[in-house]
Design a protein around this nucleic acid. Sequence first.
DNA 1: GCCACTAACTTGCAATAATAAAGTTACTAC
DNA 2: GTAGTAACTTTATTATTGCAAGTTAGTGGC
Lengths: 121, 121
Amino acid sequence: MTKAKIQSKSGATANTKATCKVRSPCPIAKTLDLLGDKWTLLVLRDVLVFGAATYSEFAKSTERIPSNLLSDRLTRLVSEGFLEKQSYQTKPPRYKYIATTKGRAIRPIISAMKKFGDDNL
Amino acid sequence: MTKAKIQSKSGATANTKATCKVRSPCPIAKTLDLLGDKWTLLVLRDVLVFGAATYSEFAKSTERIPSNLLSDRLTRLVSEGFLEKQSYQTKPPRYKYIATTKGRAIRPIISAMKKFGDDNL
DNA sequence: GCCACTAACTTGCAATAATAAAGTTACTAC
DNA sequence: GTAGTAACTTTATTATTGCAAGTTAGTGGC
């Protein structure tokens, strides 16, 4: 060991917003509390539309999400039940993220956004 | 005039993000560039679902948007063609914001979010 | 005329989140 | 043992948000 810096695995970085705050009982507001930012839905798009599964596949996506935000959004999507993290290989440790039933349920939102964008932007 | 502080009408506050930046040609990403934050779609929801029209009606909404953000989002939605600002009375100056055709086009997105929220949250 | 009140905003500032760039860990292949 | 890749972290800087208070323009009461 050249550096001796074991350090806790759970060290969260700057981007760990309080996902527990509920603004209102409105289903639209509750949905926005989970997905209402610039990156979360793009990660879900990569999974559901483009078939991305690994960290590096998300990172290669055209919008170039910063690596710490990708890490944060993946962690969040897993903890909220949209994605599941699976280890598919241990000997280099490799992971893939797959959509859960709840994750696939946002597909209509993405479709609606795609149609809006195609028609109006 | 008790204070003599005319000051320019165009003084933009802190919240004036660069709405011109285009991350990618993807219609979903372009839609998120416009609507991808916690408040913009709620303002549009207030217009399209709850029939809100005036500044104070938006401000009274259950999620309690800060007034500077409401001001910023209304300005932005008007400048991007989602809403139109109409003066309906001059003698107290009063305004109402109404959805344009483009504004009404985001209705399917809101409906999809409502359904997702009702089914999953 | 003066005071209270409402609508529609602005301004200032601390707190929070986003961005960019560099660093880390755990391997494989040459 | 040097280079390279995947999957992350860390640090430092910049931008956005949230809150409180202030402003402008006008109405109604006394």
